[in-house]
């Protein structure tokens, strides 16, 4: 029997006071260590899915459940979910003036693990992670994302992933806006997370390049808030060749 880490059951969400529906009756089951891809046209609700699993208050859950490691987390706030081991890499990471990446990561790590970590150990770990994704060490002492280029912000999200080592990581278009080299670097980081920490991944993407070095277990197609097709990793190639037309009209 496979070890299911995340189970989404019949999940529907709305946004705003008018309760505009976004996700409609989504079912998704992810086993520990697996890599799932979510693809779909713009406006399909892909980011909403990531935000909802992370616990964003913007989206209201109308029906359905989110089960993480056997526990219903549908009503938990984002911080509680983070403590349980869920991570979301943002498409547009937020700038946080007044706190350095180093202190931010250390306090976040201590918060999540509930343990104090020695400065020297932490710094070593940070250095290694930064080296892996070709990030200049000076970024550690800059305020979180403040004045970072688009590419550095995305790398910083992967840096956080490597430092926090969550059980489940949702990557929301981490590859968008990156050049070829940066995509490769970021993929290296994602792969390290997967291989070293037996990471489980849900990757929201438009682009096959980020997946080249990863073995994909399942691909899901999200259209108008519904999962309209699921398949093996090969489905990704097919979508990249033929687009979503078949699913949109189907």
């Amino acid at each position: 029997m496979s070890d299911i880490i995340l189970e989404i059951k019949d999940l529907s969400t709305t946004v705003g006071e008018e309760k505009t529906p976004i996700l409609r009756n989504v079912d998704l089951s992810v086993a520990r260590g697996e890599t799932h891809i979510i693809m779909g046209p713009n406006g399909a609700g892909k980011s909403t899915l990531g935000f909802t699993v992370m616990g964003s208050p913007v989206y209201e859950v109308g029906s359905g459940k989110i089960i993480f490691e056997g526990e219903d987390i549908t009503g938990l706030s984002a911080d509680k979910r983070a403590l349980k081991g869920i991570y979301l890499s943002f498409q547009n990471p937020i700038e946080v003036p007044g706190i350095s990446m180093r202190s931010f990561l250390r306090s976040s790590l201590q918060q999540i693990t509930g343990e104090r970590i020695k400065y020297s150990d932490f710094n070593k770990r940070l250095e290694e992670a930064m080296e892996l994704i070709d990030m200049d060490p000076s970024y550690a002492d800059r305020d979180v994302n403040v004045g970072f280029s688009g590419g550095e912000k995305k790398k910083a999200e992967i840096l956080q992933l490597l430092m926090l080592r969550p059980k489940l990581a949702i990557l929301d278009e981490t590859d968008s806006g990156l050049d070829v080299d940066a995509v490769r670097t970021v993929s290296k980081g994602i792969r390290a997370y997967k291989d070293k920490y037996n990471g489980t991944l849900i990757i929201i993407t438009h682009n096959a390049a980020i997946l080249e070095s990863l073995s994909v277990d399942k691909t899901h197609i999200l259209v108008k808030g519904r999962i309209v097709g699921s398949g093996s990793g090969d489905l990704t190639d097919e979508i990249n060749r033929k687009g979503f037309e078949k699913y949109i009209n189907g």
Partner: peptide
């Protein structure tokens, strides 16, 4: 910004701390 609060909370910080 609510988005900034959510970002920090997704890193394990309570709403108040965020």
């Amino acid at each position: 910004s609510d988005e900034a609060v959510f970002y920090l909370m997704s890193r394990g910080m309570s709403e108040e701390d965020a």
